[in-house]
Write a protein that binds this DNA or RNA. Sequence first.
DNA 1: TGCCAGGCGGGGT
DNA 2: ACCCCGCATGGC
Length: 346
Amino acid sequence: MVYTVNKFGVNINNCGNSWLIKARLVGVVKLSKVASRTIDLPEDFSFELMASAYNFSWYFDGSELIIPIGHGELTIAVVGKEGKEELRITLFSQKKINYVDALFEKVEDVIGINEDLKDFHKIWRRDPLLSQSYDFLRGFRLRKTGLWNALLIGVCQQNASFRQGWNMLALIYKNLGLKVEIEGGKATIVPPSPERIARSSVGELRKCKLGYRAEAVKKCAEAFYSGILSEEDVDKYGEEDLTRVKGIGKYTARLALILSDRRYELPPIDRWLARIISEVYNVSVGEAEGEWVSRWGKWCGLAAFITTLALDAEPLTQALRRIREGRVTPTFNESKVTPLTLWKFI
DNA sequence: TGCCAGGCGGGGT
DNA sequence: ACCCCGCATGGC
């Protein structure tokens, strides 16, 4: 992949599919290297799976993972493998910073390097739906993201296919995000701040193909901008705090807490997963949530996430067919757009 | 074409 | 507490 910056903005040439990120409104910000260190790669940790899952080309290119870490100054981390047993984390920022230790810790938290999933793996290995995917996905770790970004992801998923939802999110980033050039020639996009969205018109958001979801995105932005919600307090929030925002219901609230605070005990049961549970475990759709909770206990959210990876987030009809045919493992196919290959296409 | 898709809120019972 | 409908948009 080739990244170049010119007077028109950041041009990302991705697999021959070139497009221009217009640097209108914000221009290009340049970040310089401030610190770098290596950490040991745990035995059971797959950097590639962690970095690939539900990601964009401006965050992952197959070898290096870019993580925006808003913490005072605009800062991003670049993470890549160093040999077989180490990861190198490099921090880039606009200015010199004196709290790099906190930032390195934050990166480690985001990539889930110290997560202990032994108890989860015990259930996974013998689950009728997911056991087949265990050997493919056991090294997976969920990349944590901020609450605001998690809510954006959730809203884009509402009543839409996986592909449609991620197209919407990509448009939000491309149209409204902050284009950033990293020392060394890479380029990326930092998601738009709540303030940026709160000041945008609903019409501007509609251009991101959000449809009626534009209202929900705007309400979320206003909740952060006005201080009703804040990133730092995510660990204090429950579903009910998030569902106070109009447009955020139970599903989106749970998903957002899973993605932003690893609240794996929450079952994000949408119509898709409810039908799958109903078919696989032979219960009614109404009983699906209870069934999932009884099987996964405090791991409901992580299991739901992994279910989407194992079935390539196929629309319901195809997902059910895949289950019937016993193909509940990710397709690593050159041309197929899946949660694990999205970064090659968008 | 027309109908559906990883939700949601509002208005009905 | 439930049930049901409309809602933008893209994809088939």
